[in-house]
Design a protein around this nucleic acid. Structure first.
Length: 564
RNA sequence: GCCCUGAUAGUGUAGUGGAUAUCACGUAGGAUUGCGGAUCCUAUUACCCGGGUUCAAGUCCCGGUCAGGGCACCA
């Protein structure tokens, strides 16, 4: 709604400038006035005209104000110093807003644009740990936001099934006396085995050669039994990862295995197509010194096998061909590699990906490592979140039955985790602390609580029948500031969605959800709904708030319980 | 050494070059016979340092400081 307001106001300003016969300004800026008494939308366009008009911004603002004609739902414009402040006609505006909020409020028009969004893509050499969830949560939330914003999104998990790590696990299965415990999750067991192989590798340098041999045979000859071993390790591990992801409400539309790009010849084709640019000594490589990157990109090892980046290049080319827009979520440690990949992709005529980088989550004692067996798994984190939510719930709602209590505790626990990650801008380094990550007492739970409150209130008022009124028949003339704040906040949602999608940013959604809950709670606290003479109108506000909070949380993959 | 990020109240954090810098936690007080107190109100405290660009800098540029990451025939 605010996007529309801005467009509306911009048009008025342009017409005013035309009538003054002044030159056009290419980018008229709008902002929120600091105080509602200063209007609902403001522009500082007068500043931008200073050099052109050679006059003071205050005079300019006044001159514009004199000729500017506002359009509905605005009712007037004032000049305050150098600013032009637009005032809404609340009655018109509020009716407009409330009419626009339906059950899937926040979903924008289809853009007929296909996006392939790659996220998570953790190596299948162990369970997901809390370093991975930043990728998964940002990626999954982004997918939801982009879908809401009208994009057709396909999420992909790139499966690294032929890297050295997997070869090491295969070596372990062949050479170590280690039996995977079938009672335990397979990803956990594979993680343990991977750790053991790394220990072995430290003690015995010959292991490295043996792993190399496995890798070479797998890539070149691909004998059946070896392929089976590789694939079953990866498949098993992936099953565990999927199980974990699903509990976090994270799904992927497609799993793309990197080995496919070796087997179908696309890596060879790429090497052929890059022939004019590559150099060869021991290895085949691309020299990027002309592009300002000192580090060359190595495409094949001296034994002729491919590297991760080579296969990734083929993968990106495929994504580029199958979509209009390629988006990757990657840890900032991939920055150099992606710069190189982008250049190579350009040489091959593919689209460059848009990359969301995030900084690492570390433990207070240092960084996590599957190799060293130092990590907190996502399963552990979710179990702990559940446990804490459940004990909180026992105190607050002792009357709840076991199964409902479990269901709600799960929703609160998962919400706490997802919110904790989603609320942060990705370029911030994060040191993981249990109490901060799971502080649902005052975090996401307060948003969920606002939603539950709204649901309860509507239920108590047996509102369903009362909400089918014609909005135009309601009296909006004497609203208090809490009601006004609430409607204005609801109105912001669509522009928040649109901007978040455009900027590929998740945290504004999280921030908005908190604001929306806060505004609703203030309203709830001091405005009586049931039994008041404006009951219908207020029930309507409660219902629209409920929808907005719910849909907003859903964009973050967080459920909004009706009761908690 | 070179490259990339980050630095905002006690803590964590938001902030498209624009008016009085956001939100949460913490701390100290306070509120409510109402629709659920996982609530609300009040107080508290901040833009790392030094230059520059601009009518206007937390935001842009240059130089420092501190922190994280990268600079593999790893992924």
């Amino acid at each position: 709604m605010y996007r529309i307001l801005e467009k509306n106001a911009r048009k008025s300003v342009i017409e005013a400038l035309d009538s003054l016969k002044w030159e056009k300004i290419r980018d008229i800026k709008f902002e929120q006035p600091p105080d509602p008494s200063m209007g609902d939308l403001a522009t500082s366009v007068a500043f931008q005209l200073v050099s052109q008009q050679k006059s003071s911004p205050v005079d300019i603002a006044n001159q514009i104000k004199d000729v500017l004609k506002v359009k509905s739902p605005f009712k007037k414009v004032e000049s305050v110093g150098p600013y032009l402040n637009f005032y809404l006609d609340y009655e018109t505006f509020f009716k407009l807003v409330l009419k626009s909020v339906h059950e899937n409020y926040g979903s924008l028009q289809d853009r007929n644009t296909k996006v392939i969004l790659e996220h998570t893509s953790a190596n299948p050499n162990g369970p997901l740990h809390i370093g991975h969830i930043r990728n998964a949560i940002i990626g999954d939330s982004l997918a939801r936001i982009l879908r809401a914003a009208g994009f057709q999104v396909e999420t992909q998990y790139y499966v690294n099934d032929m890297g050295r790590q997997i070869a090491m696990i295969v070596w372990g299965l062949q050479n170590l006396d280690y039996h995977l415990d079938t009672d335990e999750k397979a990803d956990v067991e594979i993680g343990k085995l991977y750790f053991k192989v790394n220990q072995e590798l430290k003690e015995n340098s010959d292991v490295k050669n043996q792993v190399n041999t496995i890798l070479r045979i797998y890539e070149e000859k691909n004998p059946e039994e070896l392929e089976f071993l590789f694939k079953s390790v990866v498949r098993k591990c992936l099953e565990g990862i999927k199980e974990t992801s699903q509990r976090l409400q994270i799904t992927h539309d497609r799993f793309v295995w990197e080995s496919q790009f070796i087997r179908d010849g696309s890596v060879d084709k790429i090497l052929e197509n890059l022939k004019d640019h590559t150099s060869q000594n021991d290895v085949l490589y691309l020299d990027f010194s002309d592009y300002g990157i000192e580090k060359e990109l190595i495409l094949t090892r001296s034994d002729g096998t491919s590297l991760y980046t080579t296969r990734d290049l083929a993968y990106h080319l495929q994504k580029s061909e199958q979509s209009d827009w390629v988006v990757d979520v990657l840890g900032s440690d991939h920055k150099l590699a992606i710069d190189q990949l982008k250049i190579a992709l350009e040489l091959l005529g593919g689209k460059k990906p848009e990359v969301i980088f995030y900084e690492f989550i570390t433990l207070p004692e240092g960084s996590m490592s599957t190799r060293k067996g130092v990590f907190i798994s996502v399963d552990q984190l979710m179990d702990e979140a559940f446990r804490r939510a459940q004990s909180e719930l026992k105190d607050r709602r002792p009357e709840l039955n076991e199964s409902l209590s479990k269901e709600i505790a799960e929703i609160i626990g998962i919400g706490a985790i997802r919110y904790f990650i989603a609320r942060l801008s990705p370029e911030k380094h994060l040191v993981f602390k249990w109490d901060e990550a799971l502080s649902f007492e005052k975090g996401c739970a307060s948003i969920q609580y606002a939603h539950a409150r709204a649901c309860k209130l509507l239920e108590k008022a047996s509102a369903t029948g009362k909400l089918s009124v014609e909005i135009d028949t309601l009296d909006f003339s004497e609203l208090n500031t809490l009601e006004i704040d609430l409607i204005k906040n609801i109105a912001k949602f669509t522009s928040i969605v649109e901007n978040s999608a455009r900027d590929l940013r998740v945290h504004p959604i999280a921030q908005y959800a908190m604001e929306m809950a806060g505004t609703f709670n203030k309203f709830y606290k001091s405005v009586q709904v049931i039994g008041s003479d404006k009951e219908i109108l207020r029930l309507l506000l409660v219902d629209k708030s409920r929808i907005t909070i719910k849909n907003c949380l859903n964009l973050l993959g967080i459920d909004a319980p009706n009761s908690m």
